[in-house]
Amino acid sequence: MTRQRVAVIDYGMGNLRSVSKAIEHVAPDVDVLVSDDADAILSSDRIVCPGQGAARDCMAALVRSGLDKAVVDGLATRPFLGICMGFQVLLSRSEENEGVACLDVVPGEARRFESPLLDSHGTRLKVPHMGWSEVEQTREHPLWHRIENRARFYFAHSYYCDVEETESIAGRATYGVNIPVAASGEGWFACQFHPEKSAQDGLQLLKNFVSWNGTC
């Protein structure tokens, strides 16, 4: 039996090592390929799209490398996981950098946290949203398997994914506002938090992804 291959898309935006090492850690029988080659990515069994940085730069890097099409095609054809900016680029657009058109796979917009951002007691909250927040699993999903509802995941972001279609939202967190932090559709899952930096629960999510058949 041939080994399963997971492609981590390398479009020059950020820390790919942590994601690939985390997947290798939870799935030693899987080959992890960090690649900027569309053909190699689209011949893999699963695709992970990470990313950090500004929306304008991430979108420009995707388009320049021609990998924007690989993301859209890959998401439609095999299990796909978007992480952080890898979630935001799937939206229709982002407010960042005076407005950036994104891939428009998931209707919605990346919005900046309002300023000042206040919690329910009127206390001012810092931006970026940096640290460990509870994630409410708003529906059952194979990627939540063996992860307790309201487990904490690690976040580091100033813009959040305002997903339009509420039925695709899989998880929410509250940071001043109640925001979608995970979404899913046929064959894809995307999260604002960093599973590769979220200790045991994050590793469990990656493990779930590697064995996910794409249905939800």
């Binding site: 790919l16 090592r17 942590s18 090492k21 960093h194 930096k197 994050g202």
Partner: peptide
């Protein structure tokens, strides 16, 4: 970063953007 999956902050001797990139690419957050 290959074995510990929580956020890592790294400082000391950072003088240019290239230093920042190298540390991030190595697995620093």
């Amino acid at each position: 970063a290959s074995e510990v999956f929580i956020p890592l902050t790294v400082g000391g001797g950072v003088r240019q953007v290239a230093d920042v990139r190298r540390l991030l690419n190595a697995g620093a957050d």
